[in-house]
């Protein structure tokens, strides 16, 4: 059977996101040379191997990233973007590549509480920062109304750019829990949806804001 959900519910999507987060490797399972696949016990052995055998190639760096609250040790090429490392090393595919030049917002993540474009950041320069991706938002019950309203109002068509919009929306609501329609459109103005759902996001977010406010008051 296909591995795609027959019918995605908020619960099943959230569980898949949780599974993706759980599967993020805390450290590389094996230290292997990305050029010739030779395996080593430690990063420093790999470094020695590079110095000896691939002196003209760019050697991988050992870095530590804090992604969705989890600290992951990585051995990566220093020219990889955060977007690439999230996908190819950590298995997180929620940040999407569209323009790859900082002009579309599909790869938006939250870094130290602020929205940022993961295609336009070197992963090696994100050490020591708190990185939050759409998967982290998807597993947090607080943001369920937001996801729910996105789905109920079709604030997506093909859905490719949607996680980027959702992350931008979450970053906005973190700072400003009761935004106006203009503030929403302003905060999302770096996100491009090629299907043309631009006018639909503010409606979904405003509906979510109402529900989230009601939840807050219910919970005292």
């Amino acid at each position: 059977m296909p591995n795609q959900p027959t019918r995605a519910t908020l619960q099943s999507a959230s569980e898949q996101a949780a599974a993706a987060l759980a599967a993020m490797p805390l450290r590389p399972e094996v230290v292997s040379c990305p050029l010739c696949s030779r395996q080593f016990l430690t990063y420093s052995e790999l470094s020695e191997h590079y110095a000896a055998d691939h002196a003209d190639s760019v050697a991988p760096a050992a870095i530590t990233l804090n992604v969705n609250g989890k600290t992951c040790e990585l051995i990566i090429e220093p020219y990889l973007t955060l977007k690439q490392v999230l996908q190819f090393h950590l298995g997180l595919i929620g940040a999407k590549e569209m323009c790859d030049r900082g002009a579309c917002g599909s790869c938006t993540v939250i870094i130290n509480g602020k929205p940022a474009l993961s295609c336009n950041l070197l992963a090696a320069e994100c050490e020591g920062k708190s990185i939050e991706t759409v998967e982290g938002i998807a597993v947090n019950p607080r943001w369920r109304p937001l996801i729910d309203q996105y789905c109920k109002w079709d604030a997506m068509q093909c859905g490719y750019c949607t996680p980027g919009f959702l992350v931008s929306a979450k970053a906005l609501l973190d700072r400003n829990p009761t935004p106006t329609e203009y503030e929403i459109n302003d905060a999302l103005s770096g996100n491009i949806c090629i299907c043309g759902t631009q006018p639909r996001h503010s409606q979904a977010i405003l509906e979510a804001v109402k529900l989230m406010a009601a939840e807050v008051s219910e919970n005292g």
Binding site: A13, S14, A17, L92, G94, T133, I137, A138, M156
Partner: peptide, 17 residues
Amino acid sequence: NIPGLTSYALATGVAKF
């Protein structure tokens, strides 16, 4: 307001392109 069959997977970034 009936959500799309795959909308939750898309919004949460778990849908694979």
